[in-house]
Amino acid sequence: MKTILEIKDLHASVNGKEILKGINLTMNEGEVHAVMGPNGSGKSTLSSVLVGNPAFEVTKGSVLFYGKDLLALSPEERSHEGLFLSFQYPVEIPGVSMVNFMRTAVNEQRKYRGLSALTAAEFLKLMREKRAVVELDNKLANRSVNEGFSGGEKKRNEIFQMAMLEPRLSILDETDSGLDIDALRIVADGVNKLKTPQTSCIVITHYQRLLDYIKPDVVHVLYKGRIVKTAGAELALELEQRGYDWIKEEVGG
């Protein structure tokens, strides 16, 4: 099995406050890992640090992504290397059309990989194909990025971008929050359609609900900045039934 992600003793702080206190996590190619845990345990910080959000400072530890030192790369290089984050709160960018945004993103990626830019026709064809994956309306594709999108549309738009960029590792940060049942199904179906034996996924969630659709191979529980428990898919079900208190007790928190 090929190891694609190796996080070792990762510490990170924001405004001088330590949030991640020694994360260890290893992922193999093609796996789906769920990261669960109570509010404030550091789940979103972990995803932010992995994609290089400058608001977070890594104080210790290392991350290898396909053998490369991930922390030494800029956010855009991490993207070009195949890392993708579906944001918990996608950002609105008034005045920048989805088409322009995606065309720039796709062509920057192609440039990094030594490929020529797509022609307008090729690009529009690609947009059409990928839009279908998450049933994203053409009207939205012509609007400014996320501007005036509903909560569900924003999340669908994240998965649409994922489809366009074809990452090797996707991190879904609470992609299920704020979604009704139908939207959840569309988003989860989209993720599953994009899944290949070569692509991997980290699903950050509070609920079993999303994991009914996207089946995890491994479930981690993050608590107070550390991974305190790792097990198979059955752990998520147990958490759904029992909550987190028993884990807090186990770790003496």
Binding site: V51, G52, N53, P54, S74, P75, E76, R78, S79, H80, F84, L85, F87, P90, V91, I93, F101, T104, A105, E108, Q109, Y112, Q161, L165
Partner: peptide, 8 residues
């Protein structure tokens, strides 16, 4: 930052 995470 959002744009950078998309490779821009």
């Amino acid at each position: 930052f959002y744009m950078k995470t998309r490779g821009i």
